[in-house]
Amino acid sequence: MDHRSTLSVLRSQLGEQAFVTSEFRDNFRIEVPAERVLDALLALKDQAGFDMLAELTAVDYLHYPNARDRYGVVYCLLNTTTGERVFVKTFVNDPDPCLPSVFPLWKGADWLEREVYDMFGIVFEGHPDLRRILLPEGFRSYPLRKDYPLRGRLERHNFPVIPRAES
């Protein structure tokens, strides 16, 4: 797949220095700093025709060899006319990992951002309804962070017990 037109759109909108690209097999990846990510996604959507957000997810790079930042957030975009795909990647850090929401660009980002918030605690500013989506409301930690204990902490035990005589 030829990504030249996508690259030229990004260059004209963000400048040469604002992003780094890399390629692995047929994956074309664009790394953008967190403060420019909304500009980049906006340009990709409006000018390069990426009309579908196929996936939005995050990775915790704690103790990953040679990693400089803690969380990577990945946007997988698809141009449904040409079939072109790009992976936009950005990094955020503790203590308050935070990114602008892409809900205004793609409505499908709604639940995807809620899931990333649920599992990693990354806050998406401007999201209309950023609540936990999978875990119960009372859950207070973020289980896909690498420093979350493998066997869980006490969350699984915080329920009343019903003895037989009382039920």
């Binding site: 503790d94 930690s141 962070r145 420093d147």
Partner: peptide
Amino acid sequence: IVAPGSVRTAT
């Protein structure tokens, strides 16, 4: 089992 890291930020 806790992977080394800041437990305070995770749990």
